Simulated assay, not measured.
Amino acid sequence: MTTPHKLEMARDLDAEPLHSYDVFPVYQKASWELSDIPWDEFRPDLVRPEYVAFAIGAVMGESNSIAAQHGFFNEFADDYDFSAFVCLWGYQELQHHLAFKKWLRLAGTDVGYEQINAMRAPYPPGITPSATLATNIISEIATNHMYKCVSQVAEEPVLTKIMKRASGDEARHAREFIHYTARRLVTHPHELASVLETFYVYMADPEGRYNHPVSKFKGNLPELDGHITIDEVFRYFGEVDDGSAWDRIHKQLLSTLGELTGESVVKLRDIRRILAELPRPAEDSR
Rank of each mutant, 00 (worst) to 15 (best):
G61F: 00
T229N: 14
R184M: 06
E277Y: 05
G71H: 01
I178A: 01
R280E: 15
A245C: 06
I127P: 01
P125K: 15
T143H: 13
G71S: 08
M9D: 15
N211T: 15
R184V: 00
V158M: 02
P222V: 08
F177D: 14
E232Y: 09
F85C: 13
A193Y: 03
S139A: 12
A67H: 12
T109A: 12
E140V: 00
V86W: 06
V265E: 05
N136K: 07
I141V: 15
S65R: 08
A15N: 14
I56H: 07
A134K: 13
E259T: 13
D45C: 10
F85Y: 12
P279S: 04
Q28E: 07
L260P: 04
H145I: 03
V23R: 00
I249N: 01
A68N: 04
D12R: 06
P44S: 13
M9L: 14
N117D: 15
G262Q: 13
A99P: 03
D225C: 12
S194G: 09
I66D: 07
H250E: 05
S151M: 10
S151Y: 05
G108Y: 13
C87L: 14
N220H: 15
D169Q: 01
P213G: 11
G57K: 04
F85S: 11
H212C: 00
H190K: 05
K267F: 00
H212S: 00
H145K: 02
R209K: 14
D270K: 13
H145S: 00
P206L: 01
S151Q: 02
F73C: 04
P213D: 08
Y80V: 09
G219C: 07
M146G: 03
G243Q: 10
T229F: 10
P222R: 11
C149A: 10
A245S: 13
A67K: 14
D40A: 04
R105A: 10
A171I: 02
P222W: 12
